[in-house]
């Protein structure tokens, strides 16, 4: 399957590249959008071939990243419009989706998207319980109860009145 990006069918003049997700979906992306990813840019500089396989990004996540890259590569859009696109882009996304996205920004090295997604994740996390964070990041509690109590005691001010959420 080849899906064109949002800018419609590509003319012969405009260079493009095919990016394949780990589950086999292929995306046709303009080169101007692809090079906003530092990793893709490096590959394109070094090799002539136009098919890039991403072995650790699934199609859903890749489609999102490509939509982001294509919007940011569009010279017709003002910076203000791009900023509001960024806000829209992460709003309402679940934490799970954001985790895949932030990993994809790491693989593809898309710094500005990484910052946007990281900010959204932090906004979701800020009023959550420690237990929620452990669950979401699949982290084992490696403290003894004594050590845990000691850390709480030393930073007691951070544990005051606040109503913390667990979902």
């Amino acid at each position: 399957m080849v899906t064109t990006d949002e800018k419609g069918p590509l003319t012969a003049k405009k260079k493009s590249v095919i990016i394949r997700s780990c589950d086999g979906d292929e995306f046709l992306v303009s080169e101007s959008a692809a090079v906003l990813s530092t990793s893709l840019k490096k590959i394109l500089e070094e090799k002539e071939d136009r098919l890039i396989h991403l072995s650790d990004i699934d199609n859903k996540t890749l489609a999102m990243v490509i939509a982001y890259l294509s919007t940011h590569a569009d010279d017709g859009l003002s910076d203000d419009l791009k900023r509001s696109f960024d806000q829209e882009f992460v709003s309402g996304k679940e934490f799970d989706v954001l985790k895949y996205l932030v990993l994809a920004t790491d693989t593809l090295q898309v710094t500005c998207l990484c910052y946007t997604v990281a900010k959204k994740m932090a906004d979701i996390m800020k009023n959550k319980l420690v237990e929620w964070v452990r669950r979401e990041f699949d982290i084992q509690n490696d403290y003894t109860p004594e050590a845990e109590a000691e850390i709480r005691r030393l930073d007691a001010w951070a544990w005051d009145d606040r109503q913390l959420e667990d979902d």
Binding site: V102, A122, M125, K126, V133, F137, N141
Partner: peptide, 20 residues
């Protein structure tokens, strides 16, 4: 990158998540 964007109070609480 994620932790840098948290308010200081949340950050202090999250020291309890793990040793890392």
């Amino acid at each position: 990158e994620i932790l840098l964007r948290l308010p200081i109070k949340s950050l202090i609480r999250f020291k309890l998540v793990s040793k890392q």
